[in-house]
Amino acid sequence: MATFKRKTQLKQSIPTASLPDIVFLLLIFFMVSTKLREVNLLVTLVMPQAEEIEKIEQKRLISYIWIGKDKGTGQYRVQIDDALVEIPEIRHIMYKKLLEEPRLIVSLRVDRDAPMGLVTDVQQELREAGTLRINYSTKRQAAT
């Protein structure tokens, strides 16, 4: 029985001294990756669905343009950041954004039933501004 006695003498414990460090590391990761500021949407929209879609990994490059119905009047309007904008203003706003981030991707979040004319007007403005990389934001649809 001598062999059994030997085992129990060591006091075993997991070292917890580095635990705060690990947790802080995780904390910093989440703090950096969190985007707390949610844009207050002034338009209502339902995004369309599509099958062949790609993900944008570099979230920091994205700038959004929303096109949907104004919550007050029901007219189709364009929203950039926190404000509704008129069509001719878009080129100046987007050009400024492009100067800040040359690899800018413009994500168009457009309501399913919005008229194409408006979308095209916005696209013409984007061409004027030189922000040519765009992305039609869609939800995933099950493959048919």
């Binding site: 879609i53 790609e54 993900k55 944008i56 994500s107 030189g130 040519l132 990389r133 934001s137 869609t138």
Partner: peptide, 13 residues
Amino acid sequence: DVDSGIGMVLPPK
């Protein structure tokens, strides 16, 4: 939420 959609490149002006 990863942003997904149909990517396009507009023709230059």
